[in-house]
């Protein structure tokens, strides 16, 4: 009888704890990133050389949120690789070497280490390389973060959508929504959890009010409504998400409880 009593108390405490955890922290600790699929499309039988090359790729992707498969199709004239997310083709590669930086890149490494260090989120500012447009959004972002009590626990990184080194990362971000590639405006992605990117604020939508709403979303208490319908797209990354540092957000809220309401 006593055991049942203790179990009930522990369960109730866990439930209470889950409801007071903030969205950013809950997602980092609990939400596993969705899987990508790299598909090798071919018509003719796969040669031993290609099999070996594919195996090397697969071996290198084991810790990333991706799996590999081979598909034989009669309508394929030339073999190719397709990166899919939720049955949507994100990137098409003609050859295997093009997939070299598919699971990681210097900027993704940096963002991951920021998230693991307890930061609330990393705001990725995707530039158009049109200085006037980019400066407007940048100023708004700096102003909003400067005024926010959570500004010190938010990192900002900039990325050109034309970057060659980070072309795959830029492409993944531009696939968060299916029309983003055609929009030539600066975009602000909130990246949190295990590399989950929120649908971006873009162009004139990069306002102080909207940036504060993004921060409010990430700092709000994680309700069941949010858990059941998490927004955003998981970015492909070869990351180890075990044992993150305690969320810095809690320190701020503990010292000023009014901010947590």
């Amino acid at each position: 009888m006593k055991a049942v009593y203790y179990r009930t108390i522990i369960l109730a405490s866990l439930i209470c704890l889950a409801c007071t955890t903030r969205v950013s922290e809950w997602v980092l600790l609990n939400a596993l990133p969705d899987q990508y699929t790299l598909i090798y499309f071919h018509k003719n039988p796969v040669t031993e050389t290609v099999k070996k090359q594919n195996k090397e790729v697969v071996d290198g992707m084991k810790t990333a949120n991706i799996h590999f498969k081979t598909v034989a199709r009669n309508d394929v004239s030339e073999s190719w690789y397709g990166l899919y997310y939720e049955e949507r083709l994100f990137i098409r590669f003609k050859t295997l070497p093009e997939t070299k930086n598919i699971i990681s890149s210097p900027l993704r490494e940096k963002i991951s280490s920021e998230l693991m260090s307890g930061k609330l989120c990393v705001m990725v500012y995707l530039l158009t390389d049109n200085r006037e447009k980019d400066d407007t959004g940048r100023k708004t972002l700096q102003k909003a973060l400067g005024a926010s009590p959570f500004g010190s626990i938010i990192s900002v990184v900039e990325l050109s959508r034309n970057s060659k080194e980070e072309s795959i990362f830029a492409s993944l971000l531009l696939n968060v929504e299916d029309d983003l590639k055609d929009i030539r405006e600066p975009m602000l992605f909130g990246v949190f959890g295990r590399f989950k990117a929120l649908e971006p604020l873009l162009g004139k939508g990069i306002t102080e009010e909207n940036i504060n709403l993004m921060i409010d979303y990430l700092t709000s208490e994680c309700s069941c409504l949010i858990k059941d319908d998490l927004p955003g797209t998981d970015i492909l990354f070869n990351g180890n998400w075990d044992n993150p540092a305690p969320a810095l957000l809690n320190t701020i809220i503990d010292s000023n409880p009014a901010l947590g309401l």
Partner: peptide, 23 residues
Amino acid sequence: MQNDTISYDTLDSRPLPKWLTDQ
């Protein structure tokens, strides 16, 4: 992720992300 983004005429009339409208 919004796979089925609603069509719009101008960028100003583009629908806001759901997380933003919910917030």
